[in-house]
Design a protein around this nucleic acid. Structure first.
Length: 951
RNA sequence: GCGGGGGUAACCAAGCGGCCAAAGGUGCAGGACUUAAGAUCCUGUUGCGCAGGCAUUCGUGGGUUCAAAUCCCACCCCCCGCACCA
């Protein structure tokens, strides 16, 4: 080995040797298997620091498990399905300047190369080559024989089989669903297509059909239960209204609402204009209560929201109450009305703790809202809504719904009303307007005949729950996330009109959406090793049915497909060996989508024995505090990080900077300091390897070996819980500090031994440098060596206490010297008298028996004749001992009473060290027999705390 | 709004009932080494203190306990997700 640490040389060398010796290409054997997968990367860019983190965590666990003796399978593939790559190809072909800039600067693709990746196929080819090279350059222990891309013909056969199966099992069904739609492009709009209104969500209003002489006045509301409290309808005289035919009904709505309705699943046809005067002053029938109510004018009614016709519930809606109040004294005879509007009685239907019978009235008074045009009306509305939603209960007014919580009523009631034919659902953006990149205003369109995965199916959800219940989730806190998301998941459209991927086998104009085709592909890694043994055409349904599900017989499959019988049998037995997935480790962004679907599809397709075992989640990576972005920057590619720092330093840094779901922040300054630490590690190791220390083990060696056991235990425990940061802290930084102290204390004899363990402890994190060092220390690859196991026999509490006393004493002396600011001539230490140790032990014993108080303690002590000799010193000391013991944890107490610790000889062994450290001669006595004690300092000695006298 | 996570010293970040004035790293200051710089190693980094001590700290305000950064209650602030998009 070389004296100077050269990461790139070492890393290339060991990566070559790993590949040559094929040590990461596992085959089934007698060992217990461990199958770990990380979601394959999507090929619309280069791997970045986020991938680096997720994949490195996976690799560390793979290496850790391998060293623990598991037969580890860690494969990798590439995801290319969907629309982004097609879109990217179009942008590159168009030479879109922004795209060119992003891919040249952020993704570091040279301009001449960029010219050669014009088609989706070229893009996929380029990025998969780059990704593989990058993952190799950072030393991932991946079995590359099993790589594939989701656009491969073999894979398409696999997905075809899967979807046919799901279709048969009724997991794929037909339906309609609302999407954001650009009428100009005639396409659904995705987030990045939106110019304005990105945050707008689709909310569903209930449309309640009030009747007017054979016409229907639909009123959109988010609170359908308030239909029981309707006193009138509102129409804005300034708005334009139209009469339309909606399916078989005649509706009257605002002109704007008509335009929106055209995109819904209703067949609408314009049949004429309607003047506001034709509506205002008329009486309409409430379809739910049957009562007749007036249509009245109000200025707050917007034509853009809902149908443009609003039902009025003044008891619970501040706007309605205000508008009604505003009408007081207004002359309505122009509308042909003679009714006294001010006499309309309010109808209360919700009881809520914060308010009286009419919450809207109370809120308006509370906030002193002037009229319907006062901005505070909005505030009052939100306040009432919030309180009624959370604390409100429906009253008798609502008939059979009385007693229900407001928060629970909406879906139930809407369902009931739709079933009775007196309501509909109407979708509306939560914010308006929503503008497409092309400049057009977006609408909500019902996409018909869409294919769905019916995730909302409760029986299916139950199975997923059961699966989750038997799984390990890391970290455990996020289990509740999964539970919530399972509840929340609705049917998911699983087909698209464009993009790369697999066609829906029974409806070939649709492409299978790309999240659906990546749910059970982990089992495909098992097949992927054999791809040269058959053509895609040979992969018929019964091949998968047998190999993955065990249906049928291998002989029949061989006959039917022409695939060699032996191959079919091998694949099936490989599957039975490797499956299920033991660990799927992923970034937290995939929880509400991919990981959820991963579970759903596994429970739908496989028997319980093959359901996933563990999911682990990690957070994102930011750069110098800034959020990373593939499309906007900043971006740090894996390739450039490794190029600059080397694989081991990059790995160690990214693992040590954050734990679990926390986001990691990549800071160049900190990476630099990691590099220094790694260099120091290398230098320390180099010195030890070069040296030739043979000596008997001293107390300090025993201390160091004892510390090492503790670090082994912590590192192992941390890795079991996938706490990479804690693992690195223990295996690297804390152990490094132990080594510093050990060397400072003159430790030598155990160094080589310790290094052998240390290097193995570090091997999962920094495998290359550890191979290089192991090459000098052990035999074979360290990647295949045994992970250190704690040796309880090497734990030496006595040695640890000795070092603790030494270190504490040194600190005390230094503190005193700092304060008195003199150059000492001589320092004298006095260890505590025997009787004080006896008192301490007695105190601890009594504490453990829960009998320790001053009275008991004194009684017990004074009953001992040997103690009475110190009678006058005992009370004060006993008091101090009680206080000290109160602050001790049980481990410390046990150590102090169980370990036979000779304080004075420990200090004597450390005398030379202490003396050098403070540059002064040191004498050590026991308080029992202080040969030199001019200031009577020895009486201040306490166990583990020698008295100090400085001349 | 709903759901989840989080607020700890100059900064990042551990700790989640007791050796906690609080791990580790960074930064800063001092010292050792060196011709010097760098690297490395020590020491310090809330305040006060000429004997190892004391006082006050862990978002804010209350409470429980012999003992709270850690448990309970209320409040304030920050971050993330809410879909048909990978």
């Amino acid at each position: 080995m070389k004296e100077r640490y050269d990461p790139h040389e070492i890393e290339e060398k060991w990566q070559r040797k790993w590949a040559e010796s094929k040590i990461f290409q596992p085959e089934p054997d007698a060992r217990e298997k461990f199958f770990i997968t990380i979601p394959y990367p999507y090929l619309n860019g280069n791997l970045h620091a986020g991938h680096t983190r997720t994949f490195t965590i996976g690799d560390v666990i793979a290496r850790f498990k391998r060293m623990q003796g598991y037969n580890v399978l860690f494969p990798m593939g590439f995801h290319a399905t969907g629309t982004p790559i097609v879109g990217l190809a179009e942008q590159i072909q168009k030479k879109d300047p922004e795209t060119i800039r992003v891919y040249n600067k952020l993704h570091e693709i040279p301009m001449d190369v960029l010219d050669t990746i014009q088609t989706p196929e070229q893009i996929v080819g380029y990025f998969s080559r780059e990704a593989e090279a990058a993952m190799k350059s950072i030393g991932f222990s991946i079995d590359w024989r099993r790589k594939f891309t989701t656009t491969d013909p073999h894979y398409i056969k696999f997905i075809t089989w899967q979807f046919n199966l799901l279709h048969e099992k009724n997991k794929v069904v037909r339906g309609a669903h609302p999407v954001r739609w650009c009428p100009n492009d005639e396409n659904p709009v995705e987030d990045h297509d939106i110019l304005k209104g990105e945050d707008a969500t689709i909310i569903d209003y209930t449309l309640i059909k009030f009747e007017l002489d054979g016409d229907i006045l639909p009123c959109a509301t988010l609170r359908p239960e308030t239909v029981f409290g309707v006193t009138n309808l509102w129409v804005n005289p300034k708005n334009d209204h139209v009469r339309i035919k909606a399916n078989d009904e005649n509706w009257i709505v605002s002109k704007e609402a008509y335009l929106k309705l055209k995109f819904t699943d209703k067949k609408v046809e314009l049949t004429g204009n309607v003047n506001s005067d034709e509506l205002i002053g008329k009486k309409v029938k409430n379809p739910v209560t049957g009562s007749l109510v007036l249509v009245l004018p109000a200025s707050f009614v917007s034509p853009d929201n809902g149908s443009g016709i609003v039902m009025s519930v003044p008891a619970h809606a501040p706007y309605d109450y205000l508008a009604l109040r505003d009408l007081k004294g207004t002359d309505l005879t122009g509308y042909g009305m003679t009714e006294d509007v001010s006499g309309i009685p309010l109808i209360s239907l919700i009881k809520v703790p914060e308010y009286g019978k009419y919450p809207a009235v109370d809120a308006v008074n509370e906030l002193k809202v002037k009229d319907q045009n006062d901005p505070k009306a909005e505030e009052a509305t939100k306040l009432v809504y919030r309180r009624e939603f959370h604390g409100g209960v429906l009253t008798e007014t609502t008939g059979k719904y009385a007693g229900m919580a407001v928060s629970k009523i909406k879906d139930v009631l809407t369902r009931d009303l739709i079933d009775r034919g007196i309501a509909d659902v109407f979708y509306e953006f939560s914010e308006q307007p929503v503008i497409c990149r092309c400049g057009a205003t977006c609408v909500i369109k019902m996409v018909e005949n869409q294919w769905f995965l019916n995730y909302s199916d409760t029986a299916w959800k139950e199975e997923v729950y059961r699966c989750l219940g038997n799984m390990r989730i890391i970290p455990p806190e996020i289990r509740v996330d999964f539970e919530n998301k399972i509840d929340w998941l609705k049917d998911k459209a699983c087909a698209r009109r464009k993009g790369l991927g697999t066609r829906l086998p029974w409806d070939r104009e649709w492409m299978i959406e790309s999240l659906g085709d990546s749910t059970i592909y982990m089992c495909y890694y098992i097949i992927a090793k054999y791809l040269d043994k058959f053509t895609p055409e040979q992969l018929k349904e019964d091949f998968f049915n047998y190999c993955l599900l065990g249906y049928g017989t291998p002989e029949k499959v061989a006959e039917n497909t022409g695939i060699a019988l032996g191959i079919i049998k091998s694949i099936r037995s490989d599957f039975e060996y490797w499956y299920p997935v033991d660990l799927r480790s992923s970034g937290k962004d995939l929880i509400p989508n991919h990981l959820l679907f991963f579970l759903f599809h596994h429970v739908a397709i496989f028997p319980e024995a093959y359901w996933p075992r563990t999911i682990a989640i990690n957070g994102f990576v930011s750069l110098e505090g800034q959020k990373m972005s593939k499309s906007k920057g900043p971006l740090l590619t894996l390739k450039s990080a490794v190029k600059e720092y080397g694989a081991d330093i990059t790995r160690l840094y990214i693992l040590s900077t954050a734990e679990h779901v926390q986001d990691a922040d990549w800071r160049a300054a900190d990476v630099d300091s990691t590099r220094k630490q790694v260099e120091r590690f290398y230098k320390t190791a180099f010195d030890i390897i070069r040296s030739d220390d043979k000596d008997d083990l001293k107390l300090i060696d025993k201390w160091m070996l004892s510390r090492l056991q503790y670090r082994i235990r912590e590192t192992t425990d941390a890795l079991d819980k996938m706490q990479t940061r804690r693992a690195v802290q223990n295996a690297f930084y804390l152990l490094m500090n132990d080594m510093k102290w050990y060397e400072r204390r003159g430790g030598k004899a155990a160094r080589r031994d310790i290094l052998g363990t240390w290097v193995r402890l570090m091997a999962p994190f920094t495998p290359h440098i550890c191979e290089e060092l192991w090459n000098e220390l052990g035999s074979g690859f360290i990647s295949l060596a045994g992970f250190p196991v704690q040796d309880a026999a090497l734990i030496n509490k006595g040695a640890e206490l000795a070092e603790e006393v030494t270190a504490n004493t040194l600190r005390d002396i230094e503190e005193i010297l700092r304060l008195i600011k003199i150059k000492p001539k001589k320092i004298v230490l006095y260890t505590a008298a025997t009787w004080k140790n006896t008192v301490l032990r007695k105190g601890i014993t009594m504490k453990k028996e829960n009998t320790l108080d001053m009275k008991n303690f004194m009684g017990a002590l004074m009953s001992d004749p040997a103690m009475r000799a110190h009678g006058k010193d005992i009370p004060k000391f006993a008091q101090k001992v009680i206080t000290d013991i109160q602050g001790m944890d049980s481990e410390m107490m046990n150590t102090l009473i169980e370990v036979d610790f000779d304080e004075i000889s420990a200090l004597r062994e450390a005398r030379e060290f202490l003396s050098q450290a403070v540059d002064c001669s040191i004498e050590i006595y026991s308080e029992d027999k202080p040969e030199y004690d001019p200031q009577k300092k020895s009486r201040f000695a306490a166990p583990m705390r020698p008295a100090i006298y400085i001349e």
